[in-house]
Nucleic acid binder design. Sequence first.
RNA 1: UGGGGCGUAGCCAAGCGGUAAGGCACGGGAAUUUGGAUCCCGCAUUCGAAGGUUCGAAUCCUUCCGCCCCAGCCA
Length: 569
Amino acid sequence: MELSDYQVPVNFIQEIIDQDKKTNKYQGRVHLRFPPEPNGYLHIGHAKSICLNFGLAIKNQGLCNLRFDDTNPSTEEVEYINSIINDVRWLGFDWGDRLFYASDYFEKMYEYAINLIKMEKAYVCDLSPEEIREYRGNFTTPGKESPYRNRSVEENLDLFQRMRAGEFPDGSKVLRAKIDMSSPNLNLRDPVLYRIVRASHPRTGDKWCIYPMYDYAHPLEDYIEGITHSICTLEFEDHRPLYDWVLNTLNLPHPPQQIEFARLNLTNTVMSKRKLRRLVEEGYVNGWDDPRLPTISALRRRGYTPEAICNFCERIGVSKSNSTVDIRFLEHCVREDLNKKAARVMVVLDPIKLIIDNYPAEQIEEIEIENNPEDPAYGSRKIPFSRVLFIEKDDFCENPPQGYFRLSPGKEVRLKGAYIIKCVGLVKDEESGEIKEIHCTYDPESKSGKPGAKRKVKGTLHWVSAAHAIQTEVRLYDYLLLSTPEEIETEEEDKKDDFIKKLNPDSLKILTGCLAEPELRDAKKGSKFQFMRKGYFCVDLDSQPDRLIFNRIVSLRDNWERTAQINNM
RNA sequence: UGGGGCGUAGCCAAGCGGUAAGGCACGGGAAUUUGGAUCCCGCAUUCGAAGGUUCGAAUCCUUCCGCCCCAGCCA
């Protein structure tokens, strides 16, 4: 993945880095980190952060660590650690030997906490969670100091050591920073630094029963790793004074700086861990890699390329204003990438039989077709052509509307790579009136490549030979939501997750009677194609040699469908 | 309500006192054996609003308005 090939747009974070280089703030070092908590699957919002951090490192000849922020064992699991490592690597990034865990630093963090106690900057507090909340006050009322705030250094040291030793039950005591109970910033009203939690940690097992809080742990993790710029999302802006407090109070040299940017929102989908989990757990989708989801694993399964995702993340920009990016821009980025890379093939999704009356019944021709008009290096392949074919049902219309230039009675179209045909008759079901067969004649002189092919016909159709086509299943995906979840949330009623009401009932359509050209018989899982005139498709994980299954990654842009819709045809 | 942020086109987003980049979307056209891709052309007299400073303001100042975040022993 040549990220350095991209013209990375300069954003405000790069400007800060430039400034710091100029003033030699970190001796010219640029060191970032992507710090996921292993409590869920990564989604495209994380991809934005990953591309930002690793991208900035590449652009500035710096480094970027992968660090798991595993400070809360009650929600974190190894399964997530593995999936995250896999996803970041798949996106194309490399952290060298710098895969770290916050839990690696628990001992050091504990020692720093001891220092804070000795400096009279931290104390053990016996207040219950409810009491702490009451003492904290609120936006309008300043907080009250805890009665335990002025315990002696010795007592605090003793108590904290015994907290670690497991002498007290969960929730009975916490270590708190001694800052300012009347601060207008609630984060500074003696925030909790350590809590007692008896939960088995994915990495440290039962070694610890006290765990550091994010606000205390994160600046130390960054400091210990020599991070220079600690990038996080907007909601942590209020926490920055605390981030700085920890580092300054402990008097640590060259403290890293926290910089906040706006997280990614996308239309027509959900991005919050809570909502994603609900979709998965309540069966609205089939697992974390259901191709309708915006998780990295789902995008991968659906057929999105890492290049398309990274390019998208670069191009949406980085700023501090809350924004919701139109999902059609993401689609644009995959189409752009796949247009260059995907071999063209012909697959009829919704077949109707077409018989060429004047074509010899036993004859089979090998038609040669280019694999990718964008790139001759893709070469060509041969496709069998015969008297009985299948074409797309909506490529025929008995009473065509204005502007329709596919097949209709008496009209001519070209069969891609083969001949020009003319519709001369129909066979209908006597009962239903449904069209069963389309009858045509072909012009033998019009074969592609021959002089007679120069004739202009408006439409070109894709097709398969009935005797040679292979049966496939195709899964068509559409937007998960019919709009963005925020739109309902402002309609107040939400808060209890009414985004479910916005779920698109047609987000998945399974087509089982699709017919593919024989070339696709050996297509491997994960390989991607352009089904001509239809879209980009990817062989699904569920696919078997005797039961080919394709996912639609994204449709092709379709001007006709748009005009047809506008004219209500 | 106190604090912290953010307001540039339908959606992102440049712009950093010298007269509104770019992309997506949208509209029109050329070409086309994919109604794809490609190529042209169009798309903010105005930057949340109002005042002020200045020869000159999206950029500086003042006031106002709107939206987002914070009252976890989550991150």
